[in-house]
Amino acid sequence: MRASIEVADIFRTAGPAYRAAHAGHLTLQQLKVMSAIEHCRTAALGGHVEACEDCGQWRIAY
């Protein structure tokens, strides 16, 4: 079961303002980690199709 709010949700919402407020004080590694977290489980990083062998129902999982 997915939590109602995740770190990625916070980063997606507040990340741009945080980066702007701390411009010049965040390392490249910190910026890369923030970006990776923001893109986690999204179409931006790709996904795969999960299919049920019994009923044929399928869904895209990220």
Rank of each mutant, 00 (worst) to 15 (best):
R2F: 02
R2K: 15
R2W: 08
R2N: 05
S4D: 12
E6A: 06
E6N: 02
A8D: 02
A8L: 05
A8N: 05
D9V: 07
D9M: 00
I10H: 01
I10Q: 04
F11G: 00
R12C: 02
G15R: 06
G15C: 03
A17S: 01
A17L: 13
Y18F: 13
R19V: 04
A20R: 12
A21V: 04
A21D: 09
H22T: 09
A23D: 11
G24F: 11
G24Q: 10
H25D: 05
H25P: 00
T27H: 04
T27D: 01
Q29H: 15
Q30P: 00
Q30W: 15
Q30A: 14
Q30M: 08
K32C: 10
K32F: 03
V33P: 04
A36V: 02
I37Y: 03
I37L: 06
E38V: 02
C40R: 15
C40E: 15
R41M: 13
R41P: 01
T42I: 04
T42G: 02
A43D: 14
L45A: 06
L45P: 01
G46F: 08
G46I: 08
H48K: 14
H48N: 13
V49N: 08
E53A: 14
D54V: 13
C55T: 03
C55E: 02
Q57M: 14
W58F: 10
R59N: 11
I60E: 09
A61M: 01
